[in-house]
């Protein structure tokens, strides 16, 4: 596992997203209400750029017509054909086991923890870190 500093927390506010290339792979990063998520930016279907997808919630129904909406902002719909992915796991909604994209751990870390790595960090900041 390696860790990659992406940005100072202050530059990656809630409600924003960005795309980074780490070790040759493009990864889509999201800050949803202060929680960070990362997905491989390539839809397992036809390769659509997930970083351009819309964030929505989980629509379910126990019975026909009985719509419920939960987990707002945590489901990503691919910008092309609309497959839904769980931001936390990368699993598709329609077939979580067989169709999924890779999810990465993304978190905010204090600069001290990152000292050991060869990135210029300032002590007074926390940083968003992706683990690959």
């Amino acid at each position: 596992m390696s860790r990659h500093v992406v940005a100072p927390v202050s530059e990656f506010p809630p409600g924003t997203r960005r795309c980074v290339v780490l070790e040759g792979r493009r990864i889509a990063l999201f800050n949803v209400g202060g929680r960070y998520f990362g997905l491989l930016d390539r839809c397992p279907h036809q390769g659509g750029p997930l970083s351009e997808g819309v964030l929505t919630g989980l629509v379910e129904a126990g019975a026909p017509g009985d719509y419920s909406f939960s987990r707002p902002g945590e489901i990503l719909r691919c910008p092309w054909h609309g497959w839904e992915f769980d931001l936390a796991t990368g699993e598709s909604r329609f077939d979580p086991r067989r169709h999924r994209t890779r999810a990465f751990r993304v978190s905010a870390k204090p600069a001290e923890e990152l000292r050991a790595e060869t990135v210029p960090v300032r002590v007074e900041e926390d940083y968003v870190v992706v683990e690959t």
Partner: peptide, 14 residues
Amino acid sequence: MTTEVLERPSGESA
């Protein structure tokens, strides 16, 4: 370690 922020992915593969 390289970190590059991109605006928009391009369709290089096709």
